[in-house]
Design a binder for these strands. Structure first.
Lengths: 134, 134
DNA sequence: TTGTAATGTAATAATTTTTATTACATATTT
DNA sequence: AAATATGTAATAAAAATTATTACATTACAA
């Protein structure tokens, strides 16, 4: 996985900290990455119904619902990679009895792990996460 | 995370399937990646005490202990990334109250998740994983 | 004791992925 | 109508991953 989860959490925390509309430039300034990347992630969070946006002058972004109704799991799901345990790029040798089957078995293992993770992340809300900041 | 876990699992499964010494070239052929990459991962697994190697002609690799004593968690630990949830490359803006603290809080979250994952992966042994193959 | 086949590892190149940048259309407020 | 923001496409730059080449070292076996 890349830095997308961190970025999404950072965005959501900033929106949680101030209910007013926040611009992508301001968010990018706190995260310290390119504004276009932030807008791309905002666009994804929007698609997943986690935030609202307002076009035009004085526009910006805000949480789509109260922070105590947003689980960390829902944020994770919005940015989740194909495989949490990672996957090799190459097709294993189909002539090898192990190679032929291993990807399926690894996929099953990965699904098991993800279930446990999402379960754990579902225990915490954005509001609880935000409480840790002083 | 990259493909290292997949590769390590593939190596370990192949060694589990045949107790005789296996060469890195043979392993690379089944995985279908460059033999040098395989040797690098073998060198890492060796360092973690999961496998044995034998130098010289007719040399190769074998499991360091019975497959039923090797947990998937121990294989994961040998290749585990810094942060399972990923991390952004940039330092957040220290002038921002959220930016200043978020990395610490994300690190805590990550540690929680990893604990749950390793717990789950500790339930299964290589022998059990191998049983799934026909 | 010499040839062969294997591990072990360093250096470098190629490829892929991620991140940054530029540009501009569209929307909304003042 | 001007200003400021979202939204998005196209491209460039940087970083990470994977592949390749090269070769030293070890051990078996003829």
């Amino acid at each position: 996985m890349n830095g997308r989860f961190s970025i999404a959490m950072h965005i959501m925390t900033l929106l949680c900290a101030d209910a007013r509309l926040q611009s992508s430039d301001y968010l990018a300034g706190s995260i310290n990455i390119n504004p276009v990347l932030v807008r791309k992630e905002l666009s994804n969070l929007l698609k997943h119904g986690l935030i609202n946006s307002q076009l035009g002058k004085n526009g910006g972004y805000s949480l789509a619902k109260p922070a105590k109704e947003i689980t960390i799991a829902s944020i994770y799901k919005a940015v989740k990679p194909n495989a949490i345990l990672g996957q090799a790029k190459n097709e294993p040798n189909p002539a090898c009895p192990i190679g032929k089957q291993i990807n399926n078995h690894l996929k099953t293992l990965d699904a098991d792990i993800e279930r446990v993770m999402v379960n754990k992340l579902g225990d915490t809300t954005l509001a609880e996460f935000y409480k840790k900041f002083d």
